[in-house]
Design a protein around this nucleic acid. Structure first.
Lengths: 269, 269
DNA sequence: CATAAAACTTGGAACATCCCACATAAGTAT
DNA sequence: ATACTTATGTGGGATGTTCCAAGTTTTATG
C-alpha cells in the first residue's frame, strides 16, 4: 500500500491545518472537535512534536514559529534529531570564507540553523525564507536572498527570475535537498524547485545533496540531474544495492552521519 | 521624554524576545524568570495580545505564527483594530489588474493581509516577507519578491540589489510606511529602508503613505522624500496645524479611516 | 478464526492555571 | 506634600490539564 492514511493521520493533519490558522490550539477543543478523548489528542500532539511539526504547550500545541510550513510529503521523514545529525555532518564541509548556495526544504533549513552557530564569515545565497531567517541569527553570515515568484508552500521564491539571478554568481558549495534518490540521480516532485536545484549545482564547484535514508530509491516526477553531477551526499544511513555501487562509481563522496539515538535491542554486556 | 521604558516595557520585551526563540512560553516560567507574580505576567501577555504582538494560550503565550517580528520601534503605535482601519481605507485605492509595490513595515503588512481578501487579479512587488506571505493566501494575487541582503529585523531584503531590481518595473501604486511624517515629508530611522521607499515611489504612478496619527510631526534620522512627492496619505486621524496645510498645498489627497472604536467621553445627547 | 498488537477510552488523584476582588506599592500631576 | 492614577502582589475557589493505570475497542496477521 502507498499511504495507510488511517484516522490517526487525518486527525494529525487537522491539527496541523488548524495550527496554520491559529497560532495555538487547545487539547480540549481539539478533542471535542475530533470526537475523541483528550488523551488521544495528547498522544497525537506528542507524536507531532517528536517529528518537529508542532510544539507542545501546556494546554495544547503551538506551531513552530518559523521554518517551514508543515509539508505533508515529509510527514514520513525523520525526527528532528536525525535531521540534525545530517546537518551537523554537512557543516563539516564548510570553511570560513566560503560562498554557499542553499536550496529550500526541511533538511536544508535544519542545516542552515546549525550552520549559523558553527561557521563564521560566510556568504549564503538562498531562495528559501526559512534558511535566510535561520542564518541571520548568527553574526558572521551575509545572506543574499533571490528574487522570484513567491510560494507559500515552500516559503520561498521560484521561477525564471530566481534562476537568472543565481546565474550571476559563483559559489563554492551548493547544498540541495530532494524528495528521492535513485541510481539515476536525485528526484523531486516540483518542477519549479528542480530548476533551482539545477541552477545552483551549475554555479557551484561542489554539489552536496542532503537527504535522509528513507528517501533512497524513491522515484518522483522529475529527475534533478544525473547522479555523477553531485560531488557529495550527506545522509544518515548507508545506501544498499545498486545505489551504493553507482555512488562510488560516479565519484560521489558519501558522508554518513551517526545519529545520537542509541540502537535498540542491545543487551548490556 | 522620548521613551518611558519602565520595568513593564522591559518585561514585555523579554517575553517577545523569548517568543523569538521558542514557539511558546509559559506564564509560570516567565514569572519565575522575571521575579514577578504570575498575575503580572498574565496582565503583560494580555496587553501584548491586544497589540497583536503575541497570542494568548492556556498556560502562557505563543508567537503569532507568521507576519511580523515584533518591531520595537512600533511598540508605541496603535492596536490592531486601528491599523486595520487604515488598511481597509487604503484597499479602496486598489483596482483589479493593478501592479503594486509594497514596502516593509507593520502597517503595510496589515494592509497586505486585508488586501489579499479584498482584491483579485493584482500583482505585488515587495521586499517584505510578511507582506508576501499574507498576500499569497489570497488566490488572485501574484507576488514578485525582490532580491537583496536579508535582514531579520524587518524580515525583508534591502540594499542595492533590491533597488536595482525595483528599477526594472513600473507600478500603478506604491504603498509605503514611515516612522514619522513632518511638514517636510515622511521620515524614517533606517537608511536602507529609505532607499527602498524612494525607489518604489519613483517607479509608481501614485505614491501612497500609510501611517497612524501618532506619527504626525515626528522627525527621524532621514527624510524619505519631499511631502509633495506623495499622492495620497491614509491615516486614522486628521492632522493639525502646519502639517494639514502643507498636505493640501502640496496636492496630497488625505484619506482618514474611521476607526471602529467609539469615541470616548461623549455624553448621550 | 483466534491471537496479538496497536489505538483508544475511562476514571481519578495531583497539580496548574484562571479569574476575581481587594490590598499594597510606585509613579505622576496638582 | 497630597491626591490620583497606574502597576503589582495576595489569597482562594472554580476550572482545566496532566499523568498513570487498567480496561475496551479496533486493526493487523498467521
Amino acid at each position: 500500500m502507498f499511504l495507510p492514511e488511517g484516522k490517526k493521520a487525518a486527525r494529525q493533519r487537522l491539527i496541523i491545518a488548524e495550527l496554520g490558522l491559529h497560532p495555538a490550539v487547545r487539547t480540549s477543543a481539539l478533542a471535542r472537535r475530533l470526537g475523541v478523548s483528550t488523551e488521544t489528542v495528547r498522544r497525537d500532539i506528542e507524536e507531532l512534536t517528536r517529528l518537529g511539526l508542532v510544539s507542545r504547550t501546556y494546554g495544547g500545541a503551538a506551531g513552530r514559529q518559523l521554518g517551514l510550513q508543515p509539508e505533508f510529503q515529509d510527514r514520513d521523514s525523520l525526527a528532528v534529531e536525525e535531521r540534525d545529525a545530517i546537518a551537523r555532518k554537512a557543516v563539516e564541509l564548510v570553511k570560513p570564507g566560503d560562498v554557499l548556495m542553499i536550496d529550500s526544504g526541511s533538511t536544508t533549513a535544519r542545516f542552515a540553523r546549525i550552520l549559523a552557530q558553527a561557521v563564521e564569515q560566510i556568504t549564503v545565497i538562498t531562495n528559501c525564507f526559512a534558511v535566510a531567517h535561520s542564518l541571520v541569527q548568527g553574526s558572521g553570515v551575509r545572506v543574499l536572498f533571490c528574487p522570484g515568484d513567491f510560494s507559500v508552500r515552500e516559503r520561498g521564491v521560484y521561477g525564471s527570475e530566481t534562476c537568472a539571478f543565481l546565474q550571476r554568481f559563483n559559489a563554492d558549495i551548493a547544498f540541495i535537498g530532494a524528495s528521492g534518490l535513485t541510481v539515476e540521480g536525485p528526484t523531486d516532485v516540483e518542477t519549479q524547485a528542480c530548476w533551482i536545484k539545477r541552477t545552483m549545482l551549475d554555479r557551484a564547484e561542489r554539489g552536496v545533496l542532503l537527504l535522509d535514508g528513507t528517501k533512497f530509491d524513491r522515484r518522483h516526477l522529475e529527475l534533478v540531474c544525473p547522479l555523477d553531477r553531485l560531488s557529495d551526499v550527506v545522509t544518515d544511513r548507508h545506501p544498499e544495492g545498486g545505489l551504493a555501487v553507482r555512488l562510488t562509481r560516479g565519484g560521489v563522496t558519501l558522508h554518513v552521519a551517526s545519529s545520537v539515538t542509541q540502537p535498540e535491542h542491545v543487551d548490556p554486556a
